[in-house]
Design a protein around this nucleic acid. Structure first.
Lengths: 342, 342
DNA sequence: AAATTTAATGCAATCGATTGCATATTATAA
DNA sequence: TTATAATATGCAATCGATTGCATTAAATTT
């Protein structure tokens, strides 16, 4: 029952040639005659040969494996990125090993080492929220192991990145609200001012400026941006009696929390208050009213990250200059912000 | 710059011992003295040694890699399963390679072979929707490669499975509606009667029976269960003028579509029509009213699948009797079905 | 003190594929 | 016909860790 697996040596023996020839034939090496190639391929099929990538990987020093580290796998955004990576990688005969950091640096380091031990040919990573140590990544660069950062990045690490233009997303979202006639636009942002939130915030301010709307710091609410946080912010907002006619939230979750509170207080969305979120989480099209939000094209981001990785890989000889790929976000307009043209 | 990676031979040379001793020391083999172990560990750290799993895998014939195949990675249910698998696997020092079949048999076969070439120690798979060929999996069993099916399974393959009790889920959902006073309960099910839908349907019928409610075939709507299908079914339903006071849908998507149509027709949820979905998709808590649904515990399913895999792996010697793990679903009661006790 | 265990380490083959450097064979040129 | 080039294949080392089977040295028994 436990039949020994066929190797190139078995094929070689059957055909009275050597393993080297078989190896070359399988790799379509021009030094091998067409006749032998055909014979080898035929025998390989007959013997149900399955190449052992481990052996090849060991010898060649490349495993055809890519490691990807995300904070959590089961978040729509990240799983979509993974999907994108997988698509590109598989086409080029690479496999993808996934792992999660759970937003914890120590965990991230352990995970990273495990991937290195598995001898992945490179790493794609979206850095966790409160990460402040990057030596383990800088170490990678030194070792010459391809590294690509996506979405949550940092300039502390000199390597290729794929991000979306969060500034533009923030600008477009705010501009859209302004065009809908809103003037007192609240902004929900993250207490933790990592790049992406900083940029969305910047886009918000810039849009206000462009339309000559004075910026009012008291309209900016910082939180952890989960649903409950959104509720809390909305409650504080209402309690403060501040007038406002829109909320642009840098997170879909937070804005849904706010939507709930507004509804509970009989405030009409979008008529009294227009809402715009960020990320185009799948649930945004299911709320009532459906949420206007900004798509980050996660699958495309994954594809771009994978492509970035292969670029580094293929230019290994020369010094590679880190590339920054910036994807364009897209404002997805739904009912929650449509005051006009209904 | 391109510093050669340290191997056990480097450590051995430094300490004037052999690689075998180093290997044994690193593996905490009792035949090695504490003193040498300490020395080896110290030197390993000094030289920044990172074990090469490929080499070990080649020699030992096991890669510490698990392959997982799902129809699509970026679906909440599947990515959560992957998360569960990853958690269990990582603790045992295994890595997870993900890949998707995109609901296509040929693709599935290609993918499976790629995983085998990568020499994964086993495969976890959720079979695609319209899959009718299973030889490639039966082949696996013959070769003695551990295989675990989860969620979408088939009895054509004699191996361990992890599923939830869909029958019970269907029963509980229906029972809940009955207890809320509903008597004319519509059921949305899949045209494609794979196991899971068949079972949910069976649970529905059995609950009716138990409460002496006559089964009415005209209340059963078959579709592809996407949002648009749900809308369509609801429209047909309304057009038919059939009286009904609840919908139990075997899919969350379809029931949200129905909810939209009901609202558009000023039919009150849950007062006029109570709604229950299935799967506990993340968006179900964001609809208005929030959806009552059935949780399938995807993370737990992933964990169970991984554990099942390790059981097969560890009992390799003797003949392993396939295990069927049946997880209990849980009815998550939210506003969409609550007519009473509000 | 000789014989026998026990403990600690070394030797060398092995896992399966790849590849630089021969070698053998045939075809072409001189 | 001999020298030269081109073609096809073989030899053997290599990638890095593991492991069955010695071997050596120290400890214990008789």
């Amino acid at each position: 029952m436990k039949t020994k697996k066929t190797t190139i040596h078995d094929i070689a023996k059957e055909l009275n040639i050597t393993a080297s020839t078989v190896s070359r034939a399988l790799n379509n090496n021009p030094r091998i005659s067409e006749a032998t190639k055909k014979a080898v391929l035929g025998m390989a099929k007959d013997l149900n040969y399955q190449p052992n990538n481990l052996a090849a990987a060991l010898r060649k020093g490349k495993s055809q494996l890519i490691g990807i580290i995300v904070p959590t796998i089961n978040r729509s955004f990240f799983s979509s990125v993974i999907r994108g990576v997988e698509e590109v990688a598989n086409k080029l005969n690479y496999r993808v090993i996934v792992s999660q950091s759970n937003e914890d640096v120590d965990n991230e380091i352990v995970t990273l080492n495990a991937l290195l031990n598995a001898r992945v040919d490179g790493i794609l990573v979206s850095i966790g929220k409160n990460m402040d140590r990057f030596e383990h990544y800088q170490e990678l660069i030194k070792k010459g192991i391809p590294l690509v950062l996506f979405d949550r990045t940092t300039n502390e690490i000199s390597t290729s990145q794929v991000i979306i233009d969060d500034y533009l997303g923030g600008f477009q979202a705010t501009q859209h609200l302004i065009k809908q006639g809103c003037r007192k636009i609240v902004h929900f942002t993250n207490v933790n001012q990592v790049n992406i939130y900083k940029e969305r915030y910047r886009g918000y301010r810039e849009a206000l400026k462009e339309y000559d709307i004075p910026f009012d710091e008291s309209l900016v609410y910082k939180s952890n941006m989960q649903l409950a946080d959104g509720r809390e912010c909305a409650e504080k907002l209402l309690a403060s009696k501040t007038a406002f006619d829109a909320i642009f939230s840098a997170s879909d979750y937070a804005v849904v929390g706010a939507m709930q509170v507004l509804k509970e207080n009989k405030i009409k969305v979008p008529d009294d208050v227009a809402l715009v979120g960020f990320s185009n989480e799948p649930f945004t099209s299911f709320t009532d009213p459906a949420l206007t939000t900004v798509s980050q094209f996660p699958i495309e981001m994954g594809q771009a990250a994978a492509e970035s990785f292969f670029e580094i890989l293929n230019s290994k000889k020369k010094k590679f200059i880190p590339q920054k790929t910036v994807l364009q976000p897209e404002l997805i307009i739904r009912a929650s912000s449509l005051k006009l043209d209904k």
